[in-house]
Every structure is written in C-alpha cells, then in structure tokens.
Computed example of a mutant assay.
Amino acid sequence: MNPIKVLLADDHDVVRKGMKMLLEDEEGVLVIGEAADGAEAIEKVKALMPDVVILDLTMPKMTGIEAAAVISQEYPSVRILIFSMHNNREYIINSVENGASGYLLKDTGKDELLRALSVVSEGRKYFPPEISEVIIDELLAKNLSGGAPVESKPIFQKITPKERQILDLIVQGYNSREIADKLFLSIRTVDNHRANMMKKTKAKNTADLVKMAIQ
C-alpha cells in the first residue's frame, strides 16, 4: 500500500519541523514538502500533488481558509486537513465551507492525527469529539439539508442526544467500528443505538434512517 503523501503548511517553522518529526517515522505516511504561508502552500500543492495538505489557518500572505478555497477548487483530489489552535464555530464552519475535509486542534495526539490523515485521504470527513454536537448539526444542516434547521426534523425529536451524535456520523459515512472508535464506545453499543433509532422512527434499514436525517 502506498504511503499517504503529506504537505505541511504552517508559518511557524518549529511547528512544521515538529510535525515532520512526528510523522516521518510512520510507515504509512510520507512528508513530501513544507510551506510557510497560504500562497506557498498552493504553489507546493501544484508542484507536488500531495494526497493531504495539513493546513494552519492563521498564516501570512494568504490565510489557511483562503488557501483551502483555492486548493479545493483547483486540485479537488487533494484533501485538506486543518490543523489549528482555534476551536470556535466560525473557523470550523468557514473551513469546511471552503473545502476542508477535517479539522484538528493543535493539542491533538499522534494517534488521532494519524487516524484523521487516514480518513481524509480516503475522501471522507474527520471531526474530533471536541467539536460540539451543535457545530456538527449546523454543518449537516447547511451541507445536507439546504439550510433547514436540523432540530425541526421529526427524526431528531424522537431520538436521544447520543443517538443523534451517532446518526450524524452515520450520515457522514462512518461504519459501526469507526463510530465506536471515534466515540469511545463498543461496537455492540453503537449497533444497539442504531437498532433503537430504527425502532423509534420505523426505519426499514440504515439507508432509510439516513434518508430521514437529510431530507
């Protein structure tokens, strides 16, 4: 299996070097370049075509969000993983709306960073548990339901907050094992919640459940 080719973009040299040292010993990851600002990140993406660019938000010349917008538009096969110290609604939503596939905070551990790289390199989304359910719901509302408030949908009035959190992840394409790992639950617990949601909503299968959530 080919390693995940990664470009590191951060205006702090110490951060870039630290991340490079963290990743270079991993067999499944190959750091192929670095950039010190958003404009340079775009140039490096064009020249190197990484699988994933790990992008800081607050950089000179061009912000990470501005760079993400250009990269996602011009190089759609390149996945964008935001790596930021900012844990607030505006930054997260703007990042996703401009093409980011994932969002990690800079105090993230190595295991979660590697998990996020693996997930986004496969074309899926990755948001860590620190991001509140309110933020996830708002992202889903904007991207999957055309702006209609999630809370107004009948399905969300029938299920518990934990079931709602699991359903959000099902809609994003995660399977039971991945949801269990992400929420620190057993697979059996996830499957039980899934079964309970189907019973409460009278959904025939998981596809029917997802349809209720996004329509």
Rank of each mutant, 00 (worst) to 15 (best):
M1R: 15
M1P: 12
P3T: 01
L7S: 10
L8T: 10
D11V: 09
H12S: 08
H12T: 02
V15Q: 06
R16N: 12
G18Y: 02
M19Q: 12
L22P: 01
E27K: 09
G28C: 11
G28S: 15
V29A: 08
V31K: 06
V31Q: 08
A39L: 14
A39T: 09
I42M: 04
V45P: 05
V45A: 03
M49V: 14
M49L: 15
P50Y: 09
D51M: 07
D51K: 08
V52R: 00
V53N: 02
V53M: 11
V53K: 08
V53W: 03
I54S: 02
L57G: 04
L57Q: 03
T58C: 12
P60S: 04
P60R: 11
K61H: 10
V70S: 09
S77A: 13
S77F: 09
S84E: 05
S84R: 03
N88P: 01
E90Y: 13
Y91M: 13
I92W: 03
I92S: 02
I92P: 01
I93A: 07
N94K: 12
N98C: 02
G99H: 03
A100M: 04
Y103Q: 01
Y103W: 05
G109I: 05
G109H: 09
K110M: 06
E112V: 00
L113D: 07
L114M: 09
L117H: 09
V119N: 02
V119M: 10
E122Q: 15
E122W: 07
Y126M: 02
F127E: 02
P128Q: 08
P129D: 07
E133F: 14
K142N: 14
N143H: 11
L144I: 08
G147F: 04
V150C: 12
E151Q: 13
S152V: 14
K153P: 06
P154V: 11
I155K: 03
F156W: 04
Q157A: 10
K158W: 11
R164Q: 08
R164C: 05
I166H: 07
D168T: 07
L169T: 09
L169Y: 11
V171H: 08
Q172V: 04
Y174N: 09
Y174C: 07
S176E: 14
I179L: 07
I179C: 03
A180Y: 11
K182H: 14
L183P: 06
L185M: 10
I187D: 11
V190I: 10
V190F: 04
V190C: 02
N192I: 10
H193S: 12
A195Y: 06
N196V: 12
M197I: 05
K202G: 13
A203E: 12
N205D: 12
T206A: 13
L209H: 07
A213V: 06
A213L: 10
Q215I: 15
Q215S: 15
Q215R: 15
